[in-house]
Nucleic acid binder design. Structure first.
Length: 104
DNA sequence: GATCAGGCTCTAA
DNA sequence: ATTAGAGCCTGAT
């Protein structure tokens, strides 16, 4: 299958994350039917097309932390801000997964 | 926390 | 086509 299809599947899962909840990369990968492709999820998000309704900021790593690379300080800021705007408490780039992890 | 190893895709040579 | 390096990860040491 093409990488684009792959991206579609992943995005399709991500857009189903309800407001006020977050999901981990591995979780998204799993629900997209890609058990071990957590890293690919991150990659796809990084290469996002311009025409997206993707709440990428609701996707964090398995430890409830924001995994953006050092270069993306701004992106990280935006992500925390967006989450905070949705009633998700983010403290120093960390989220309480107990409360906010998405469980379909 | 920090480190290691495992697992998987992408890009470039 | 094969090889090598790197990446917005994960689970265990």
């Amino acid at each position: 299958m093409s990488n684009h299809e792959l991206a579609q599947m992943i995005l399709n899962v991500i857009i189903q994350i309800p407001q006020g909840k977050v999901a981990s990369y591995g979780q998204v990968a799993k629900y997209a039917g890609l058990p071990k492709h957590a890293r690919l999820v991150g990659r796809v998000l990084g290469q996002l097309p311009e025409d997206h309704d993707i709440p990428w900021y609701r996707v964090v790593n398995s430890q409830g932390r924001i995994s953006l690379k050092k270069l993306d300080e701004k992106g990280m800021c935006i992500q925390t801000a967006k989450l905070l705007a949705e009633d998700v408490v983010v403290i120093d780039g960390k989220i309480n997964l107990k409360k906010y992890q998405w469980t379909p």
